[in-house]
């Protein structure tokens, strides 16, 4: 298992290099230079050129990229062009909000969708099955930001029971968490339902029944774990989508997370900050994927031994 984790960590290196190279290329192709940004519109062309020279803006592409990678490995993602702060510090200031939002949404998804899908599968074609699957269809059809706006209108503006913006206390996280988890809950509960139905038709379930096990025991002991195998795969993919969704959700709910940081950085053409946030999010995504893959080993013994 440890060997596997080390192997996976090593495999993350080319992935990270690929992502950073791609983003770095795109950013280099965009117009604009740090000198103009930092010194403002009053500066002369000479001053701007001198500043750009000092920042290494005129260096060849690969020299710049190489410098970025070397510094990034040491935990230094550069300095913001806009407010002259270290990018790493900016990100760490914002990270807790994004982290909390993602974790809450993951927890909400797991707590709601797996039991819901299981119940729907066990009571196939019942009212609870039909209602929950219809609800799932609605949730799956809504864009994240639209759901967010609707929640604000209903719960913050009309009912006035929850705050619409900010990230000061736990109340601020309720609506964003629901908005972010919404579509994933839909996907995962449907997936759980269909997999559970399939698993319940397996031969080993019949074997368990032939042993004299009760239906409850059949589900708990024999069906759930087998159902989770494909569900966790889909959950893993959706966690990535969720991480991307935080960018939108933070914007809608005015939360000071990495998503808003990144969007502001793009607006102000603060390239080091954009690079830094993208790199950091990519790293988070890789780590989440790794955790998902490790969790497989615990769910499916066939993977652990290979």
């Amino acid at each position: 298992m440890i060997k596997y984790i080390i192997k996976r960590l090593i495999m993350m290196i080319p992935v990270m290099l690929g992502i950073t190279l791609l983003v770095f290329t795109i950013m280099s192709l965009s117009p604009g230079d740090p000198g103009t940004l930092i010194l403002g519109p009053m500066a002369t062309q000479e001053e701007i050129d001198a500043k750009n020279q000092e920042l290494g803006f005129y260096d060849p592409f690969f020299v710049k990229y190489f410098d970025f990678v070397i510094n990034a490995v040491q935990g230094d993602l550069g300095t913001s062009w806009y407010n002259n702060q270290p990018v790493t510090r900016e990100i760490m200031n914002r990270f807790p909000v994004t982290f909390k939002l993602t974790i809450y949404s993951i927890l909400l998804t797991v707590i709601v969708s797996i039991p819901l899908g299981t119940i729907a599968a066990l009571k196939q074609y019942s009212i609870i099955d039909n209602v929950s699957m219809l609800l799932a269809l609605f949730l799956a059809s809504m864009p994240v930001f639209w759901l967010g706006l609707m929640l604000i209108i209903i719960f913050a503006l009309n009912l006035d029971i929850l705050p619409a913006t900010g990230n000061e206390n736990w109340k601020n996280f309720i609506l964003p968490t629901i908005a972010l988890a919404g579509s994933v809950i839909a996907v995962i509960s449907r997936m759980t339902r269909v997999t559970m139905i399939e698993v319940l038709h397996m031969d080993y379930i019949r074997t368990a029944r032939a042993k004299g096990a009760t239906e409850g025991r059949v589900v708990r002991k024999h069906a759930i774990q087998n159902t989770l195998i494909p569900v966790v795969t889909v959950l893993g993919v959706n966690l990535g989508i969720m991480l991307g969704g935080t960018v939108l959700i933070e914007q809608v709910f005015g939360m000071a997370g990495i998503g808003t940081l990144m969007i502001n950085a793009i607006r102000t053409k603060d390239i080091p900050l954009v690079m830094g946030s993208v790199t950091f999010l990519a790293l988070c995504f890789s780590i989440i994927n790794l955790l998902v893959d490790i969790s497989y080993g615990f769910i499916d013994p066939r993977i652990k031994t290979e």
């Binding site: 031969d203 080993y204 019949r206 074997t207 024999h222 774990q225 087998n226 013994p301 066939r302």
Partner: peptide, 13 residues
């Protein structure tokens, strides 16, 4: 049962 390949639960020792 007929098929030993599928009549055992794959995730239980």
């Amino acid at each position: 049962f007929q098929d030993p390949m599928t009549s055992l639960n794959p995730v239980i020792p």
